[in-house]
Nucleic acid binder design. Structure first.
Lengths: 135, 135
DNA sequence: TTTTTACTTTAGAATTATTATAAACTAGAA
DNA sequence: TTCTAGTTTATAATAATTCTAAAGTAAAAA
């Protein structure tokens, strides 16, 4: 991903390209594979990869702005911490409770044959399949 | 549900039948339909329904003991609070983000035709389907 | 370019959900 | 009854997250 694309991510999220934000964006979006993280794990990765200092609040703010702009998604995981995902396509997850690790499942890997209709005046927004793993 | 059954729930959870615990057990298990709650919502319901006083810690302890004994299940919902469910059968959920309301879906209402195999040395523990609703 | 303005970062305080603690209380055994 | 182990409770502690206000910086205006 080019520098210009990183700036585009920031601009489209309503964020000025500051040193911290550029580092966060580069870390999150300059990669081939999907990345799952919590704010805490992201902070650790940033501390290792960059020389720049990051206040936790900056990471929270930036991640939330990316999420609001649709550049990140949030994953429902039981537990206290919030998990984010750089994969924003419609997809599903394996979850390994032993390691707290999430693994993406492409939407095409899951076929649902039957599903109930939405109640009363509601519509279905999306369907998430969550496969818990054990050893 | 008879009084003896309430006591059975408590005993099988390793809990002595104190006033508070009996009230909580009666409130949770003397009902026909599934009940979804957070510790906070349960506290509010108990305050209305009973004259007994409840420390938050007592509610947390009791609910966790029930969960550990398999009398309650926990639902993955994005957000800070932990949701519990009196339905302990294998089933799925609708989630209405507007109202933060959960609705049960019986396992028979969902048929999955294709699912990926578990990675490396792992096995599938269970599959949860979560249907988000919109208006 | 300088100045100005509006947005940012940051450290630390505040908040929220939950868990731990320790003293006062109680169910059930002896 | 009396005793003992398990309980309740208020409060403190912890953890994740959000808020705040002062100091810093990007980019528009002059």
């Amino acid at each position: 991903m080019k520098k210009e694309d990183i700036l585009k991510k920031l601009r489209s999220s309503g964020l000025r390209p500051t040193k911290q934000r550029v580092e966060i964006a580069k870390f999150l979006f300059e990669r081939d594979k999907t990345f799952h993280f919590t704010v805490e794990s992201l902070e650790n990765h940033l501390a290792k990869k960059t020389t720049c200092k990051f206040a936790l609040a900056t990471i929270y703010n930036t991640v939330h702005a990316f999420k609001k702009a649709g550049h990140l998604s949030e994953v429902d995981v039981r537990g206290k911490k919030t998990y984010f995902d750089t994969n924003i396509t419609d997809h599903h997850h394996f979850y390994d409770n032993e390691t707290s690790e999430l693994i993406d499942i492409d939407a095409s890997e899951v076929v649902i044959q039957k599903i109930p209709k939405a109640p009363n005046g509601k519509k279905i927004k999306n369907v998430e399949v969550f496969i818990n793993l054990k050893n």
